[in-house]
Amino acid sequence: MKLLPHAGGVRASVAAALAVLAIYAGLIVSLLWFFDTGILRETLFSERTLFSVRLSLMAATLATLLALFLAIPAAYALSRYRFWGKEAADTVLEFPIIVSPAALGAIILIFFNNPLGEWIQENVIYFVFGFAGIVLAQFVTVLGIAVRMLKAAFDAVPLELETVARTLGASPRYSFFTVTLPLARNGLIAAFILAWAKALGEFGATLMVAGSMAMRTETLPIAIYMRLSNADIERTVALIVVLVSIGLTALFTARHILGGGRRA
């Protein structure tokens, strides 16, 4: 029999939940100490900031789309099939989480210094210190999370539905696009939004691969780093407000879509 928790226990538990909110909200509110609307307006509409916003949005969107392009079939295979190397592939999805982004970026940078990496840079596409490098760093960082989230979404679609679709004459591809993917829609949207938000805030790997060059590889997090390095706290705060606003909007959109899906 499950006993009702002691009232003291309930209070402590609720207090812990509110403490979590207080920590993050407090950190955000503390920015107000250095908040200056004049500097915010000037920073927001400066060419350099608009470049950073554009670069961040483009790189994060491209990196996320590329990650999903690979993650959808990979997650489906991990969810549905048994194959050699499945366990290793499943475990490696956590790699970007356990390895620090800086180390991940360093690994990518080192790769482009070996003969294969050099050949790719010379003959296919040049990554280091450029837009492609930013996209690659963000792609590698978010790929594991995208696969993990999509696998969970595909796992939630009963295999029986695909079998029924096949007996009704659907090819595996038709069944995937008309049954599996529509039913995994919420997971797909959540994976896109969360991977995109993570890519947008990505700093360590991007810094390693693309460097910190103003008006060239200056994504929003890199811009924050550069302003802070120059002790320009008011402009740093302005950029943080931009980044936090975009990130929180993405998170609340994901929650709204997923909540709406559950109610349906």
């Binding site: 029986e160 079998t163 007996t167 039913l183």
Partner: peptide
């Protein structure tokens, strides 16, 4: 023969109706 070419009718235990 693949499933889709066997021309079978299948009603599983949980019916497998497409909820969407």
């Amino acid at each position: 023969l693949p499933v889709e070419r066997r021309r079978l009718g299948y009603v599983p235990q949980h019916l497998g109706l497409f909820p969407h």
